[in-house]
Design a protein around this nucleic acid. Structure first.
Lengths: 185, 185
DNA sequence: CTCATTTAGTATCGTTACGATACCATATGG
DNA sequence: CCATATGGTATCGTAACGATACTAAATGAG
């Protein structure tokens, strides 16, 4: 099956280029990825543990990366009163600002302006491969909160949703972000 | 344009997972990628310089990676009589054997068995993004030798081809491998 | 309640990656 | 002949990474 090998090689090569592109403006690839994750994750998912699962890495490594971002003033830690073992992470204004200047990576430029048919086929393929790859190793999907089977829309009035798993109220902002616990509806 | 951001995020996340999968059997991601490249590159392209271009890395880093593979007995260096500055790289039998056991990475498994329509769309999208990304930074395509505009088929009889750029005869093996100098016909 | 177990995270070690810079040897082209 | 370009190595400092050991807090069984 030559097609399969070709596709895998393309993925591997593109992965390497994407990774190397991450060495910009003084940050490292893992640091950029952590910032991007924290900007997209809902409040239940902004922890070292969830970040570890998202990156497919190990907690020791992630702890180190988070510390470097904290030293750089891009991320802040806060205690979680409900569970004093866990740490809540938030981007600082400086972190948000830095991320906003990151909009046009070279890969994003390459994807931008792609014919819609090609982009759609690419996205569908990527989604499927990612889902299969994650299923094979017990990885989590980190899908959108609002698409989750535990999500109860407008449970407390218009725009006031509810998570049946965590028993927590959810705002519109939360519902649009990705979540560690998300399972497709 | 939400679609574009979605696609870029999928690429970034898959890139990270592919990268992390490279930490297997004592080798590092960069070392696996170097081995794979050397198994696919034709004899003109098995040099540190070409590997540097393929990986989108820097020559210092690649020099280090190649040295580690040489110490591990997976790669051999040979002098190039035509240009004594340059170094020719070859996989050792141990390197070839190791690479053969690498066939089923977790991403390859995820791609395997993909519905043909999805796989085709994915591959087309990846090719386009890769080509655009490379064009944006002067990167080379590293396409198949036989698809090159400098390739002259059967110039010296059946199966004896010729490279008009390097003025070198090419066998069938060469023609099927990837090349640093390749430019689409 | 107590104590074993689990969970969230940190600390430390050794190796590698990586960019940056400096450097060396060989080629190339006035 | 000599300036410059090219292919590669050496070295430095930072970060990544897996591995292992560790701390503290939560949990759960008796």
């Amino acid at each position: 099956m030559q097609g399969r090998n070709e596709t895998v090689e393309l993925i591997e090569r593109l992965a390497r280029l994407v990774f190397n592109d991450g060495h910009s403006r003084g940050l490292k690839p893992a640091q950029w990825e952590a910032l991007r994750y924290l900007s997209r994750a809902n409040r239940f998912s902004r922890t070292p543990g969830a970040l570890t699962a998202y990156l497919g890495s190990t907690k020791g490594t992630v702890s180190q990366t988070v510390m470097s971002l904290e030293r750089a003033g891009l991320v802040e830690k806060a205690a979680n009163p409900a569970d004093r073992r866990s740490v809540h992470l938030d981007l600082t204004p400086a972190g948000v600002a830095l991320l906003e200047t990151d909009g046009l990576t070279r890969v994003a430029q390459a994807v931008d302006g792609l014919p819609e048919a090609v982009r759609g086929g690419l996205e569908a393929g990527l989604r499927t491969v990612l889902a299969r790859r994650l299923a094979a190793s017990g990885g989590r999907a980190f899908g959108i909160c609002g698409d989750c089977r535990h999500f109860e829309r407008d449970a407390g009035g218009r725009g006031h949703h509810f998570c049946r798993l965590l028993h927590q109220p959810l705002g519109g902002e939360d519902a649009a972000q990705i979540c560690y616990e998300q399972e497709a509806a």
